[in-house]
Amino acid sequence: KTVEVNGVKYDFDNPEQAREMAERIAKSLGLQVRLEGDTFKIE
């Protein structure tokens, strides 16, 4: 899975870890996480 923030992509081998990281980043920035294919987009 991939986490994308402001056009910057971070790859994770563990999908659960990617989801947790995406949620943590989104919460700290006051944004939403949206799953698009294999990418968690933070917008």
Score class of each variant (00 low, 15 high):
N6F: 15
D13T: 11
I25H: 02
V3Q: 02
F40R: 00
E23H: 13
L29E: 02
Q17G: 06
S28G: 07
Q17S: 10
L31D: 00
N6G: 10
N14L: 08
E16W: 12
E20P: 00
E43R: 08
I25N: 00
I25V: 09
V5A: 04
G37V: 04
Q32D: 07
R24P: 00
V5K: 02
P15R: 07
E4N: 07
F12D: 00
N6T: 03
E16I: 11
D13R: 09
G7P: 02
Y10R: 04
M21Q: 06
E20D: 09
G30T: 02
S28V: 12
D11K: 15
Y10T: 05
F40H: 02
L35S: 05
K1F: 15
E16N: 10
V3S: 01
K41R: 10
V8N: 07
K27V: 08
L29N: 02
K41E: 02
L31Q: 05
V8Q: 10
L31G: 10
G30P: 00
K27Q: 12
Q32I: 14
N6V: 04
K9F: 09
I42M: 06
E16F: 11
Q32Y: 11
V5C: 15
Q17M: 12
F12L: 05
E36N: 05
R34G: 03
K27M: 12
E4S: 10
A22D: 00
I25Q: 02
K27G: 07
V3F: 04
V33S: 03
M21K: 03
L29C: 14
K27N: 10
D38N: 12
E23C: 15
A26C: 12
G7L: 03
T39E: 04
A18E: 00
L35R: 07
D11C: 15
E36F: 07
F12E: 01
L29P: 00
L29I: 03
K1H: 14
K1I: 12
E16V: 11
Q32E: 10
M21E: 09
A18P: 00
P15D: 08
P15F: 14
G30K: 06
E23M: 14
G37C: 14
K9D: 03
E36S: 06
K27D: 07
D13N: 10
F40I: 06
A18G: 02
E23A: 10
T2K: 12
A22N: 00
M21Y: 15
E20L: 13
V8P: 01
A18D: 00
N6I: 05
T2L: 07
T2S: 14
V8G: 03
L31C: 15
M21A: 12
G7M: 04
N14M: 07
I42L: 11
V8L: 09
T2E: 03
E20R: 13
V33T: 04
V8M: 11
V5R: 02
F40M: 04
F40C: 04
E36P: 01
K41Y: 15
Y10M: 09
I25Y: 07
E4D: 08
E16G: 08
A22W: 06
S28E: 14
K9I: 10
K27I: 10
I42V: 12
G7I: 02
Q17A: 12
E4Y: 13
R19M: 07
G30Y: 04
E16T: 10
T2C: 15
E23P: 00
G30V: 02
L35G: 02
G7R: 04
A22T: 00
V3R: 01
D11H: 15
V33M: 09
M21P: 00
F12I: 05
G37D: 07
E43D: 11
P15L: 11
N6P: 01
M21R: 04
S28T: 11
A26F: 05
R24C: 15
R34V: 11
R34C: 13
V8A: 07
D38V: 05
E4K: 06
K9N: 05
T39V: 13
E23S: 08
V33H: 03
K41F: 14
M21S: 05
V5S: 03
E23I: 13
V33K: 01
R19Q: 07
I42F: 10
V8D: 04
T39M: 08
E36H: 07
F12Q: 01
L35I: 13
F12S: 01
L29G: 02
K27W: 10
G30I: 01
E4Q: 10
A26Y: 03
K27P: 00
L31R: 05
F40L: 09
P15T: 10
E4T: 08
E20G: 06
E23V: 11
A18W: 05
Q32H: 12
P15M: 12
E4A: 06
E4I: 14
E20T: 11
N6R: 07
D38R: 05
F12C: 14
T2M: 09
G37Q: 05
T39W: 03
Q17L: 12
S28W: 14
S28C: 15
D13K: 11
T2A: 11
D11R: 15
E20H: 09
A26V: 02
K27T: 10
V33I: 12
F12V: 05
E43I: 13
G30W: 04
L29V: 03
R24S: 09
M21D: 01
R34W: 07
R34T: 10
R34P: 02
V5I: 13
A22H: 00
E43L: 12
T39K: 05
E43F: 14
V33Q: 02
E16Q: 12
K1R: 13
T39Q: 03
G7W: 03
Q17P: 02
E16Y: 10
T2W: 13
L31P: 00
N6Q: 08
L31H: 05
I42C: 12
R24Q: 09
K9P: 05
Y10S: 03
S28M: 14
E43P: 04
E23T: 10
K41C: 14
A22M: 04
L35D: 05
K41D: 02
Q32L: 12
G37Y: 05
V5Q: 01
D38Q: 08
V3P: 01
R24D: 05
M21N: 05
E20N: 09
E36R: 05
R19F: 08
Q32P: 09
D13F: 08
F12A: 03
S28D: 10
M21H: 08
N14E: 08
I42S: 01
R24Y: 12
E20F: 11
A26G: 06
R19N: 03
M21W: 15
Q32R: 13
V5H: 09
K27C: 15
G37S: 04
L31Y: 10
L35H: 07
K27H: 10
A18H: 00
Q17Y: 08
E23K: 08
E16L: 10
V33N: 02
G30L: 04
I42E: 01
F40A: 01
N6W: 14
Q17K: 12
F12G: 00
V3K: 02
I25G: 00
V5T: 02
K9H: 07
I42T: 03
P15E: 13
V8E: 07
A18F: 05
I42W: 01
R19P: 00
K41W: 07
D38L: 06
D38C: 15
E36Q: 07
K9M: 09
N14C: 14
V5D: 02
V5L: 11
L29S: 04
K27E: 10
E20Y: 13
K1G: 09
V8F: 11
E4P: 02
L31M: 13
G7N: 05
F40N: 00
R24A: 11
D13G: 08
E23W: 13
Q32K: 14
Q32T: 14
L35Q: 09
K9T: 11
E36A: 06
M21C: 15
G30F: 05
N14D: 14
E20Q: 12
Q17D: 13
E16D: 12
V3L: 06
Q17W: 08
I25S: 02
P15G: 09
G37R: 05
D11Q: 15
V3A: 01
R34F: 09
N14F: 08
G37N: 08
E23L: 13
I25W: 13
R24H: 08
E43H: 08
D13W: 07
R19W: 11
Y10H: 06
D13S: 11
G7C: 13
A22S: 03
V3N: 00
Q32F: 12
N6H: 11
V5F: 14
L35M: 09
E43M: 12
R19E: 05
R24V: 07
A22E: 00
E16A: 12
P15Y: 13
A18Q: 01
Y10D: 00
A22K: 00
T2N: 07
I25P: 00
K1S: 12
L31A: 12
Y10E: 02
F12Y: 08
Q17V: 10
R19H: 06
G37E: 05
T39P: 01
V33R: 00
G37P: 02
Y10W: 10
L31N: 01
G37K: 06
E20V: 11
G30S: 05
L35W: 08
D38H: 09
D11A: 14
Q17I: 11
K9L: 10
M21T: 09
D11T: 15
K27R: 13
V3C: 11
D11S: 14
K27F: 10
M21V: 12
F40V: 02
K1C: 15
F40W: 15
Q17F: 08
Y10L: 07
E20K: 13
G30H: 06
N14K: 08
